[in-house]
Nucleic acid binder design. Sequence first.
DNA 1: TTGACGCATTCCGATATAGGCATATGATGG
DNA 2: CCATCATATGCCTATATCGGAATGCGTCAA
Lengths: 120, 120
Amino acid sequence: MARAATTSDAFNAIAEPRRREILVLLRGSERPVTDLARDLGMTQPQASKHLRVLREVGLVRVRESGKQRLYGLDARGLRPVHEWVGGFERFWSESFGRLDEYVQELKQTRQEEPDDDDDQ
Amino acid sequence: MARAATTSDAFNAIAEPRRREILVLLRGSERPVTDLARDLGMTQPQASKHLRVLREVGLVRVRESGKQRLYGLDARGLRPVHEWVGGFERFWSESFGRLDEYVQELKQTRQEEPDDDDDQ
DNA sequence: TTGACGCATTCCGATATAGGCATATGATGG
DNA sequence: CCATCATATGCCTATATCGGAATGCGTCAA
């Protein structure tokens, strides 16, 4: 088995840096493919392919406008991602950067004051 | 070129569902590989491999404890992800489901009151 | 030492991605 | 109808993933 399809998930879709760039650009306004390609310094086929992925996961919509096709952001699919990652917020807050020292402190405190306590 | 390495990014690392499951489990407490494997219904080598990826991107730490190796969460790497996705929050709030109607409204308003405005 | 346990690593195969390049498709204007 | 602009698709290669199964390796106990 290979890696899960990029189109299987918002998680997988946004794993690609270029696709993330596209989404950021689309935050500003609807845009045709050529525009995006130029602004991001990639070829038009590249942009088209990435947009296809984004469309398949529903992060992007297309709207025909005469000769052009305007791509627009549909960020709703990002919400589950935000929520999932948000579930870890308390783990990077709480001065988590110095967890090791914190553990050391705890140990010392225990030795000084032999209260009985259980960790959860 | 192939897809970016799973170890290149937190974005890429958490694209894998099983790895996400692992991270969720580790929110509870440190755990040895076998535990995780059993609880998630995967083989031990599978779990080990996923943990390796998570370790390489710094989302997980290992601590030797006698015969065992305890894996623990280090969620700091998820913060950038949360922030990036958070940048889209206003796009899924604001009754985004009816964006089209909203755009229509804007157009009409413009015609009624020809203020000069520029979008950025 | 031998064995058992906990875990990591290796080899295998199937899959599909991303980029590059060429080309097909589609609508528009003479 | 033809040329042109805007976009999508097809083909190709290199690469790396994930799963499965087997095995390597280090630690601990007898």
